[in-house]
Design a binder for these strands. Structure first.
Length: 473
RNA sequence: GUCCCUGUCGUCUAGAGGCCUAGGACCCCACCCUUUCAAGGUGGCGACACGGGUUCGAAUCCCGUCAGGGACGCCA
């Protein structure tokens, strides 16, 4: 395949708002977006809402908000198919007139019977074309419109990820392009839109590979035999962690849920990019690197299961890379969701700085940071037993002694003071740090004690130490 | 049932006939570092679905089998 020249590439992401946008759709959107960015092209967003029964405003909202959150902004659109009905009717009228389509009066029951018979014979169920050569209108029945698919020959799909795939026209049938209620159908609208929007690369899930020959036949009805057709690229499916189809139980949740759970958009995107695509041994990619390195030719053919552990790991990798001020702003809503009030003078950036290497997500970070905002209600039993007994009490008193008189309250000063005390007493740092940790955090886990106390402030630190120093019997 | 697609560690992947004793990553385990937890470092466990060909040589090419998935709607 020849490389597209700059500025000519046009890709589209065409979700249908019948379910909430989940990571399967996001991966498709990402590859479309990356390909357009990589080749200096145009990324189009088109909402395929011709199924008016099942499309919801909520689903449309999730698509728009989700893509905005991820930064996958369209260069054109969103377009809505329901706003293009005049155009679809125009094409259908033209096809009816030029004998490329015809009215079909078959009832649902009739079609069901026909399919049942075919199944019983071991045939592939397909419309047998009984109305194809003109049948008198049936009174009181509004006909559907069917496309006249060629009977002979084959359709060749030159797929960018699967290679050449050949279908026989005799396997296809005359599909309905307009329902009896007048609404056009999916496969038809896709063809008209991809043509009208001058899409050069159709990148979508490989569940659409089987639709491609029908679409190619209709496209040729529009542009003629030698007319331009887009490059097709059918991406492998994404499966749930157990290797089965993505479902509500695992993974098929709204993409916005990942925001709520404290994932970074670039981490999700990085994770999704590595599903079916790779660049040597590299695991962590910035958005810029993905744009620079991505190519549809390097995409795999086989389906892949999502791995929540790896997503979490990648999220931490990206937090480590991210700017602390930005992370602090993202941490705020997580703290609020955890029911914590953040005083105006809190140094969230300092909290982020010491927590990000010990958190997989921002939600985890919020949870682990609770004690910065609330004094411990109780001490973790095991930790208290071990560190707040007689020996611990003495350690706390000694620490209180040096911290009370510390001239400056900052990390290095605290570090030095406690180190000096440990040296003077001839004990390891742990002997002092652990009791302090339990006293201020309520448990045995926290960032380094000097950073922790610096953030907490002198007054709060001394209050908590004093309380712990007498708390245990 | 018919047609189409896919098959490398548990998972994501590298691999374009000799660089493969099959590499990396997540997970798990051990050790190092260490003030706890992490992060980081080192090492370990662990795969070419099966059977036939082609070839001096096959994870790689061909055929078959098996397994998984998709499509077959007045859903998209």
């Amino acid at each position: 395949m020849t490389k597209p020249s700059p500025g000519t590439v046009r890709t589209r992401f065409a979700p249908s708002p019948t379910g909430l946008l989940h990571i399967g759709g996001v991966r498709t959107a990402l590859f479309c977006w990356l390909y357009a960015r990589r080749h200096g092209g145009t990324f189009v967003l088109r909402v395929e809402d011709t199924d008016r029964e099942r499309s919801t405003d909520e689903a449309v909202r999730v698509i728009l908000e989700g893509m905005a959150w991820l930064g996958l902004n369209p260069d054109e659109g969103p377009f809505y198919q329901t706003k293009r009905y005049d155009r679809y009717r125009e094409v259908i009228a033209n096809w009816l007139q030029t004998d490329k389509a015809y009215h079909c009066y078959c009832s649902k029951e009739e079609l069901d019977t026909m399919r049942a018979e075919q199944q019983a014979r071991g045939d592939k169920p397909r419309y047998d074309g009984r109305c194809r050569h003109g049948k008198p209108p049936v009174a009181g029945v509004t006909p559907v419109v069917r496309f006249k698919n060629p009977h002979e020959g084959e359709v060749v799909v030159e797929d960018a990820v699967h290679g050449r795939v050949v279908f026989q026209n005799k396997e296809l049938d005359d599909l309905i392009i307009q329902r009896s209620d007048g609404n056009p159908t999916y496969n038809f609208c896709v063809v008209v839109d991809d043509h009208d929007m001058a899409i050069t690369h159709v990148i979508r899930g490989d569940d659409h590979l089987n639709n491609t020959p029908r679409q190619l036949n209709m496209l040729r009805a529009m542009v003629g035999e030698g007319g331009p057709v887009p490059v097709y690229a059918h991406l492998p499916m994404i499966l749930g962690p157990d290797g089965t189809k993505l479902s509500k139980r695992h993974g098929a949740v709204s993409v916005l849920e990942y925001d709520r759970e404290g994932f970074l958009p670039e981490a999700l995107l990085n994770y999704l990019a590595r599903l079916g695509w790779s660049h040597g041994d590299q695991e962590v990619f910035t958005l810029a690197e993905m744009v620079e390195l991505f190519d549809i030719e390097d995409v795999n053919k086989s389906a892949s299961a999502i791995n929540p552990d790896k997503l979490a790991w990648l999220n931490q990798q990206h937090m480590l890379l991210a700017d602390n001020t930005r992370l602090a702003a993202m941490l705020r809503p997580q703290l609020a969701a955890a029911g914590l009030e953040v005083p105006a003078d809190t140094d969230l950036v300092a909290i982020v700085a010491c927590q990000k290497e010990r958190s997989k997500t921002l939600r985890e970070m919020a949870t682990a940071s609770r004690f910065f905002f609330e004094a411990p209600q109780a001490y973790e039993e095991k930790a208290a037993k071990k560190h707040l007994a007689a020996e611990g009490q003495a350690a706390l008193q000694a620490v209180i002694g040096v911290l009370e008189v510390l001239p400056e309250w900052n990390g290095p000063a605290i570090h030095e003071a406690i180190n000096a005390l440990a040296a003077a007493q001839g004990v390891g740092l742990g002997k002092l740090a652990q009791p302090v940790r339990v006293a201020v955090s309520g448990g045995s886990i926290s960032p380094p004690i000097d950073a922790t106390l610096a953030i907490l402030g002198r007054a709060e630190t001394l209050t908590r130490l004093a309380r712990a120093a007498v708390a245990q019997g």
